[in-house]
Every structure is written in structure tokens, then in C-alpha cells.
């Protein structure tokens, strides 16, 4: 291990390599945080730089010194050799994405989020040409009870960002993940189970963190036409995370 790692005034010089590039990191940063700060893209879905990592989707998997690990939870070590953009890892990421697509009902042509959706954009990035697996076609009724927001559970990828935002930022606990394994699903914490019977509002952080098209503001769905949206302009790998972009 190099001397730098333990010398505080030099700590900005601790580095690891990501696909051969030297990436600086500071204590406490995870691999994906250091990579993002250096302008490098590692595919991810349940990670959002504003929140504690959840480590559940595994799209951010890399190999660190030859061992597979989630880059949103793993902290780098000095001179660690991290590989992300390899055929093997991208093949595995694509298979994970395909499973997410067939487990829900993703009809992009009629989805308000199309073109701004991280699941879709990540699938474009990883050349996902088909869902490959057999579709589950689950039955997940919508919740249109709230005046301003619609919930379309068909598109939920169980990233828990809405639940984390609601409890950690809004102090409300409107959303939770319930059930286990394949039965895991998103629930709304009210007696009726309906969004209208919670204190959820459009000012909540939880209203703005869903990476896919579940939590949808009503009456503005197609204000920006399909074809003119963020990931139509640039691939997700070239689109800084909105929060990272704001912070720079």
C-alpha cells in the first residue's frame, strides 16, 4: 500500500484505476462516487448521489481486484484495479435489465417517462435489443386517487428511492417496500393503501426521485414531446446526474 493513503494532507492523491484510468478518491467515498466525481460513468439504477446507497439492483457491479462487487457500496483501496466496461460485466448488466423489464409491464411508447427514464436509457446504453426472457405480465392496478400525482406500479423496479426520500428527507414515510424475494412490492402507507389518504404532496422529495415512470405528475405527461427528451439528446453515459451537475 502506498504511503499516501494514511497521510491526511495527501489524501486527495490516493487513487485507484477504473478500466485503466487513474481515479482519485478521498476517505469514505465509494467507487461510484469517486468515478462520478471524475466524470466517469458506471451504469446504476438504485444509486442516487443524494441518498445513502441501497445496493440492491446490482447494475453498478464492477470487478475490484478481480472480485465482483457493487460499486455503489464498495469503497476503493489505494491502487485497486477496478473494471467496469467489460463485455462480461455488460452482458450480466444487460441480463439484469432484461429481468427488470419482464418482471413489470414496460410499455415505453405510452409511458410519460419515456426518454427521461433511467431504466430505458441504461438499456439503450447497454444495447438491450429485446427483453429476451418470457414476460410475467403481472396485474398491478394504478393508483390515481391523488389529485396531482398518479402511481403506475407496473413500472416499479423496487429501487426504494421514493421510500428513502420520503422517510429521510420528507420525514413522512409515504412509501415502503413490502414482501420478500420475487413478492417484493411497493406499498403506500395509509389505511386504504391509497396515495390520496397520505400527506404526500408535489413538494416532497419523494415526488421527484423515481428513476422510472411510477410517480407521475398528472396533466404534464407529454408536455415535452417524445423524441425531444433528455436521453434522446444524449446517451445516459454522457448525461451528468442532475444532482451531480447541480453540485459542480
Amino acid at each position: 500500500m502506498s504511503q499516501n493513503s494514511n497521510t491526511p494532507h495527501n489524501k486527495n492523491q490516493t487513487t485507484f484505476t477504473l478500466d485503466g484510468k487513474t481515479i482519485p478518491f478521498s476517505e469514505g467515498q465509494t467507487i461510484i462516487q469517486a468515478a462520478m466525481a471524475a466524470g466517469e460513468y458506471i451504469p446504476h439504477l438504485c444509486f442516487n448521489p443524494e441518498f445513502k446507497p441501497h445496493g440492491s439492483c446490482k447494475i453498478c457491479t464492477v470487478t475490484a481486484n478481480g472480485r465482483q462487487t457493487a460499486s455503489c457500496t464498495q469503497q476503493p483501496q489505494v491502487d485497486m484495479m477496478v473494471e467496469s466496461d467489460t463485455k462480461q460485466i455488460n452482458d450480466e448488466r444487460r441480463a439484469l435489465l432484461q429481468m427488470l423489464f419482464v418482471e413489470g409491464n414496460h410499455f415505453c411508447p405510452s409511458c410519460e417517462k419515456s426518454g427521461d427514464c433511467q431504466l430505458q436509457a441504461t438499456a439503450y446504453e447497454l444495447d438491450m435489443m429485446s427483453p429476451h426472457f418470457d414476460h410475467f405480465s403481472p396485474n398491478r392496478p394504478l393508483d390515481a386517487s391523488h389529485g396531482e400525482y398518479l402511481l403506475d406500479f407496473n413500472r416499479c423496479i423496487l429501487c426504494s428511492l421514493c421510500a428513502r426520500a420520503s422517510s429521510d428527507v420528507d420525514g413522512k414515510n409515504v412509501f415502503s417496500l413490502a414482501g420478500r424475494g420475487i413478492k417484493t412490492h411497493l406499498i403506500v402507507n395509509s389505511k386504504s393503501g391509497k396515495l390520496a389518504d397520505t400527506d404526500f404532496t408535489g413538494d416532497d422529495k419523494a415526488a421527484h426521485v423515481c428513476p422510472v415512470g411510477v410517480i407521475i405528475k398528472k396533466r404534464v405527461g407529454f408536455a415535452v414531446p417524445i423524441g425531444k427528451r433528455s436521453f434522446d439528446e444524449h446517451p445516459i453515459s454522457a448525461t451528468p446526474h442532475p444532482i451531480v451537475k447541480g453540485a459542480i
Binding site: 409491464n105 414496460h106 410499455f107 411508447p109 405510452s110 435489443m129 429485446s130 427483453p131 405480465s137
Partner: peptide, 18 residues
């Protein structure tokens, strides 16, 4: 070759599946 959303994931007609 599968051409288009409906050949690839059922598309709009598959919205009757549930």
C-alpha cells in the same frame, strides 16, 4: 427479424394481458 415494440414485447395489444 422482430420489427417494432409489439413483436418485441407485445406492445399495446399486450396491455390486455392482466
Amino acid at each position: 427479424v422482430a420489427v417494432g415494440a409489439c413483436a418485441i414485447n407485445g406492445g399495446l395489444p399486450a396491455q390486455r394481458n392482466h
